[in-house]
């Protein structure tokens, strides 16, 4: 599913001086895997996730996603590939405050080629699947943190991505809400979705089938 070769991300510090956030990352993630990325703050976890999510384009090296050489794609082609393949879950949920739950779920579909009818059906299906039909007309500020993240996950997978990226998805939730989200991830993974999550929590990491450790931008260890 994902193949990274000699991937690096750096920022200029001065004349011919650079600060390296990621260095020489070589990584393979198979389809259907559930990978947790761990490491101390500043290790480059989130940067790696944003590169995988094609939010960041200032990296060097090779990145293959589903056999497509992302490093050779033009920005527009990357955006198309991202919209087809990837869903993203954020630690801060990042629901749009001025949209209802229903509209937040509809947003990713509105940016893709879905007809109005298809969008309505998919949103209805997702509301039903996540048991939040009764909350469809509420605004994010009217939901608890767990409910917001539930909507965040629903929004991430509504366009049926093959890869779900999650940046500390339970970081802002208390433990029972966190567990609920992680169970949801496990279920999605069991249904065949590839998941890469960034987490500080050993417990959450254990939901994955593999743990990757990053330190100072280097990939230092892989546990299966």
């Amino acid at each position: 599913m994902i193949k990274l070769r000699r991937l690096e991300r750096r920022y200029p510090l001065g004349k011919e001086k650079f600060f390296y956030v990621l260095r020489d990352i070589n990584l393979d993630i198979e389809e259907g895997e559930f990978v947790s990325v761990m490491g101390p703050s500043g290790a480059g976890k989130s940067t790696l996730l944003h590169i995988l999510g094609m939010h960041d384009s200032g990296w060097a090296g090779e990145y293959f996603l589903a056999e497509t050489a992302v490093h050779h794609l033009k920005p527009k082609e990357r955006a198309t590939l991202r919209n087809e393949q990837i869903g993203f879950v954020f630690q801060q949920y990042h629901l749009l405050d001025d949209l209802t739950v229903y509209e937040n779920l509809d947003i990713p579909l509105s940016y893709r080629r879905y007809s109005k009818g298809e969008r309505a059906a998919l949103v209805a299906d997702m509301l039903d699947r996540f048991q939040i039909v009764g909350k469809k007309d509420l605004y994010p500020s009217q939901l608890s943190g767990g409910q917001q993240q539930l909507v965040g996950v629903a929004r991430a997978i509504i366009a049926e991505p093959k890869l779900l990226l999650a940046d500390e998805p339970t970081g802002n939730l208390h433990s029972s809400q966190g567990e609920e989200i992680m169970e949801l991830f496990r279920k999605l993974n069991d249904e065949g979705m590839t998941i890469v999550q960034v987490t500080h929590s050993e417990k959450n990491a254990s939901y994955g089938k593999r743990i990757i450790q990053l330190r100072d931008g280097w990939l230092v260890r892989e546990n299966r």
């Binding site: 955006a79 993203f88 954020f90 990042h94 947003i107 893709r112």
Partner: peptide, 16 residues
């Protein structure tokens, strides 16, 4: 700024 970033992250093109 954040709202726009989320929209971009959810797949909105710059044109959109």
């Amino acid at each position: 700024q954040g709202e726009m970033a989320v929209r971009l992250a959810l797949g909105a093109g710059r044109g959109r």
